[in-house]
Simulated scan of single mutants.
Amino acid sequence: MLVAKSDTGQYISLAAPWEKNDLFTMRKEQNFFCTTCNGEVQLRLGEKRIWHFAHRSAHSCDIEIEPESAYHLSGKIQLYHWAKKTNKNVQLEPYIKNIKQRPDILVETYSGKRIAIEYQCSTLSHATFSKRTNQYYRIGITPIWILGGNRIRRLSHSIVQLQSFDWLFAKNADRFHQLSILYFCPTSKQFIYLTDLIPYSSTKTLTSLKIYPQESFPFSYLTDFQKNIRVSKQNDWLIIKKHWRYSNTSFKKSYAHHYMNKVFQTLGTPLSLFPSEAGFPTPYHFVVETPSYLWQSWILIYFLHLQSNQPFHLKQLIISFETLVRKRVFTLRRLPQVKNNDLSLAIRGYLYFLCKLEIIGQINEETFIKRRKVICPQSIEQAYKGDQQLLSTYFKRKEI
């Protein structure tokens, strides 16, 4: 921690420009105490780590204490000074008693809005993340979670690796139902926005990466980032669909893959020849963690038993899909900060896409009708050609 109380009740912030000799003298003459639990803390003035306060090893605080690396402490200090430049009141590590929370930074803007900045470099459980977030909202504080830049794992210029923990930080980015995640790197003094997040597996995601020097990143971007930097990912997605078709011959696969492989075997078709109409990043597809070619193929096959012009209800499809989720065939992604992250939106988004392809039609808000049969390709070559034609049409219409 960077803030503690002295014997006299004075708050000592290590974000201030202290001389080391002054802190050495203070440490000899005074004791220091946690601002949360009043337990005694040590002032550590090492050469390798950033100066900080720490509880005695056997002490338990009133709030959950996470280990803070030098990277984390440095980022917290930089974010504190950055926020102070353009806001009415900024506090470092204040203790909010009624919710027993101590945000890294608490900001009051000139418009009167209160914002808690949480700079997160270590892993949190989903339960802890949700609890903290909900507590802030309950007392009228908007939480802004920023991930440490050292968590970014780039696999290529447009592909990153995101774990389920990273997805907790995803937020709605714009009107195109796209998501973004914000990072900050104290080493390079840069904010990094991952936008247009298009996951194609449980851990791999297509994205557009935008880097801002700290001094040119407005504070308003924390709550209102609407930069539209959408870039066509047609070629990237075509490569991904090729990978899905080729990788179906490998041995290490998920339960969803094994399940759908058996489904396709009953049709006398290998899974690698899934319909070209499956595997698209349709609106809200990110709600489902299972790769889209699997769950969308299941929806297409769900129609095969229907006769042409036979209606079906969205609710029936959702119930059947939820049954497979409960059986752990398909997996949903945890997105606590994303508005409208319901499974029904992902399914509806795909059905609307099928309507545009005239595979199905829409009778009313909840009822659809089968228009034509979906045909699986007869060869990999035919599959590639179908993928290319459909993707060209899809991206030309700017569906994503």
Results as ranks from 00 to 15, higher is better:
Gln10Leu: 14
Thr249Tyr: 04
Glu358Ser: 12
Gly268Thr: 03
Thr123Phe: 03
Tyr95Asn: 12
Arg138Met: 12
Thr195His: 08
Glu322Tyr: 00
Leu304Cys: 04
Met260Gln: 03
Leu43Ser: 08
Ser158Ala: 13
Ala70Trp: 00
Ala70Gln: 08
Leu273Asp: 03
Arg132Lys: 05
Arg27Asn: 07
Asn261Ile: 02
Lys242Arg: 15
Arg348His: 05
Ser201Trp: 13
Ile380Tyr: 03
Ser69Arg: 09
Ser57Lys: 14
Ala16Gln: 15
Ala54Val: 15
Glu118Ala: 14
Leu73Trp: 07
Ile152Leu: 00
Arg372Asn: 10
Ser247Asn: 12
Gln307His: 01
Asp22Cys: 03
His285Asn: 14
Ile105Ser: 12
Thr8Ile: 11
Glu322Trp: 00
Tyr352Gly: 03
His313Met: 15
Tyr284Asp: 10
Gln135His: 00
Ile363Asp: 02
Ser220Met: 11
Phe129Glu: 06
Arg56Ser: 03
Leu155Cys: 06
Gln307Ile: 01
Glu399Arg: 12
Thr367Phe: 14
Arg333Cys: 09
Lys253Gly: 14
Asp166Leu: 01
His59Phe: 13
Arg153Val: 15
Asn134Arg: 08
Glu29Tyr: 01
Leu304Val: 10
Thr25Lys: 14
Glu40Gln: 13
Ser74Val: 00
Thr266Phe: 01
Leu194Ser: 14
Ile117Gly: 05
Asn309Arg: 03
Phe225Cys: 12
Asn98Cys: 06
Leu324Asn: 08
Ser320Glu: 10
Ala58Gly: 02
Ser13Asp: 13
Ile63Val: 15
Leu168Lys: 05
Ala127Val: 12
Gly112Cys: 04
Phe219Ser: 13
Gly349Ala: 07
Ile400Ala: 00
Asp7Phe: 04
Gln163Leu: 13
Phe274Gly: 14
Arg114Thr: 04
Gln234Thr: 07
Ile229Trp: 02
Val325Met: 02
Ile192Thr: 09
Asn150Gly: 02
Asp387Cys: 00
Ile299Phe: 11
Asn150Ser: 09
Gln226Glu: 07
Tyr95Ala: 12
Leu238Trp: 11
Val288Asp: 04
Ile240Trp: 00
His126Pro: 11
Lys5Val: 10
Ala256Pro: 09
Asn134Asp: 14
Gln234Asp: 07
Pro94Thr: 09
Asp104Tyr: 12
Leu43Glu: 07
Ser201Thr: 14
Val107Met: 02
Arg153Thr: 04
Val374Tyr: 09
Tyr119Gln: 06
Glu66Gly: 04
Pro67Ile: 00
Thr393Ala: 15
Ile375Gly: 02
Ile50Tyr: 08
Ala4Arg: 02
Pro270Asp: 03
Ser60His: 09
His257Thr: 14
Asp236Arg: 06
Phe184Tyr: 11
Val325Arg: 01
Asn364Tyr: 00
Ser272Lys: 14
Tyr284Ile: 02
Phe330His: 06
Ser272Arg: 08
Val329Asp: 11
Trp295Ile: 00
Pro291Arg: 00
Val160Ala: 07
